[in-house]
């Protein structure tokens, strides 16, 4: 039982993701989370603006049940399955983050600006609102996120998914190395 409370290594967490994908396929669905954003647009009436969102959202309602389950999973894990809140990141990453002024990197799951006190600062607006916007715009443009392209698409040997994953890294590396250090120091 001890295992449940310790952080899970990559060779536990990775196969769990495959099990999730397989379980959804067996349930007659497919593994893809970003479509839930479009489903919520449809439910909110975005079909009035463009036919891209004009469809029967009830067919996609199962995605929202999956998402709700994921939220509950996060709650269960954080409340009942954690000894502490540390993240086992490498010493190099900790040193780098300290060098640009971050306090106690890795001592909690997220940096200290993940709070309602910080969200309406310039830094908070850029990271949460703009960052979220880029995630939502990019995934729909690329037609899939990490679950749709990196896991489901690559598992089915889809070349478009490999191209999308290369894009994920072009964007992620550019942000991490050339832009984010300035945003973090705001």
């Amino acid at each position: 039982m001890d295992f449940l409370f310790k952080p899970w290594d990559w060779y536990v967490a990775g196969p769990c993701i495959t099990i999730t994908m397989a379980a959804l396929l067996i349930a007659g669905r497919r593994f893809g989370i970003s479509t839930s954003f479009a489903t919520m647009c449809t439910m909110a009436g975005a079909g009035k603006w463009t036919d891209f969102f004009r469809k029967d959202w009830k067919q996609d309602a199962w995605r929202l049940f999956f998402v709700l389950g994921a939220v509950i999973g996060g709650f269960i894990a954080s409340h009942f399955m954690m000894d502490d809140t540390m993240v086992g990141i490498s010493v190099e990453t900790i040193r780098h983050l300290e060098s640009i002024g971050m306090k106690n990197p890795g001592m909690t799951y997220e940096p200290d600006y993940f709070s309602w006190d910080h969200v309406f600062t310039l830094k908070g607006i850029i990271i949460f609102l703009l960052g979220g916007f880029l995630v939502g715009f990019g995934v729909r443009y690329a037609d899939g996120c990490t679950s749709g392209h990196a896991i489901s698409g690559l598992s089915n040997l889809q070349l478009p998914s490999l191209i999308a994953v290369i894009g994920f890294f072009i964007g992620g590396l550019t942000m991490t190395h050339f832009i984010l250090p300035y945003i973090l120091q705001l």
């Binding site: 880029l134 995934v139 443009y141 290369i166 994920f168």
Partner: peptide, 24 residues
């Protein structure tokens, strides 16, 4: 795939979460 993926990557590195983790 390339353009959208790159835009997504920019946001992923910023928020630190792809769609699943955002919900979780």
């Amino acid at each position: 795939y390339l353009y959208g993926g790159t835009i997504f990557g920019l946001g992923w590195a910023m928020t630190g979460g792809c769609p699943g983790p955002l919900y979780i």
